[in-house]
């Protein structure tokens, strides 16, 4: 099966759903990388390059949205969520403007560009902003439907997208519901709660665990905020151990969000797997996942250690 990066799925979704005249797409000199150029080829009159000026792009997006536009603003996650964080906070979230920040090149799997371009803090930062919805899709179809849902929601949305091609998790009949987690594999001994391309890795980890007689459930959390509390509590009740898996710093991301829900509603044992308070490195994506302990085998090993 072919692999498709979620950033590619984003560009295609923009072109697919972009007929609405209200849709305006902004980019900061990265349109070939973020794939907003796919939209530009179809609707060049509604694609605007803001140059290498991400903070400005977020405020211009806010101004456009204040007149009734549905604005998509794209750059790499590090420059969206971190360089332009305060503009997103004050000019987009505070006035609750209809801007979709679609940030590509999130996580370590940016690869060879290294730590300066690998964003591993964006989920923590973006979910801390009032009025913000945060989505982190895992594959092509989920991204496509997430972009459609973001377009239909009136308000700020952050969508976390990746550079690396990934396998499909969901079938063509997949139904996307904002704020609802998806059980992608049933299981009774523990639940792997994953987001983004860690869903694929967690499914592989579950297969490794199955060989050792451990029946792991796998949940895809595509909406980090608002997170699916009911499903998380249900999994904790039914499987006990919860293991969160994310291509993100261990602080404040998916693991943090899951722990907040469980600590208040159903305290149970949680193992958080992610980047452990370190910056990334240059390297090919597979080597980076190995170095930072995020391969299927390493996830399976950590689950076994947590069960003992």
């Amino acid at each position: 099966m072919g692999k498709v990066a979620t950033r590619e799925a984003y560009g295609s979704a923009l072109a697919q759903y972009g007929a609405d005249e209200r849709v305006i797409v902004l980019d900061a000199d990265l349109s070939k990388s973020t794939k907003t150029d796919t939209f530009k080829k179809v609707y060049p009159e509604r694609h605007f390059n803001m140059g290498i000026a991400e903070a400005d792009m977020m405020c211009i997006a806010a101004g456009l949205a204040s007149t009734g536009k549905i604005v998509f603003a794209s750059t790499f996650a590090i420059f969206a969520a971190e360089r332009a964080c305060e503009q997103i906070r004050n000019s987009i979230c505070y006035p609750k403007l209809n801007v979709k920040i679609c940030a590509t090149h999130a996580g370590l799997t940016v690869g060879e560009d290294g730590a300066s371009h690998q964003c591993i803090e964006d989920l923590a930062i973006m979910r801390a902003l009032p009025n913000m919805t945060v989505i982190s899709p895992c594959d092509e179809i989920e991204t496509n439907l997430a972009i459609k849902a973001a377009m239909e929601l009136d308000g700020p949305v952050y969508v976390r997208l990746g550079r690396l091609g990934v396998e499909a998790v969901h079938g063509e009949d997949f139904k996307f519901e904002l704020g609802k987690g998806v059980v992608v594999k049933e299981g009774t001994d523990l639940t792997l709660v994953a987001t983004g391309l860690m869903v694929q890795e967690s499914l592989k980890a579950a297969a490794i665990l199955a060989d050792k007689g451990i029946n792991a459930r796998v949940v895809d959390i595509h909406t980090i905020k608002p997170i699916d509390k009911d499903l998380l509590v249900k999994c904790a009740k039914e499987t006990g151990l919860i293991v969160t898996v994310e291509e993100h710093n261990i602080a404040g991301g998916l693991g943090g969000a899951v722990c907040e829900v469980l600590a208040e509603n159903y305290p149970c044992k949680v193992k958080m797997i992610g980047v452990e308070e370190k910056f990334g490195k240059s390297g090919v994506p597979a080597a980076l996942l190995e170095k930072y302990g995020l391969t299927a085998q390493q996830i399976a090993d950590k689950v076994i250690a947590a069960k003992n």
Binding site: F48, C59, G63, A65, S66, T67
Partner: peptide, 30 residues
């Protein structure tokens, strides 16, 4: 802008207002 009739943009963090005004002016052109 959500609280006060007649206020077209929430401001306070310096530098951001002019950039949002650029967005509004661009919208008029579009």
């Amino acid at each position: 802008m959500d609280y006060v009739p007649g206020v077209d943009m929430s401001t306070g963090s310096l530098g951001q207002g002019i950039a949002t005004a650029v967005g509004m002016a661009l919208a008029a052109k579009i």
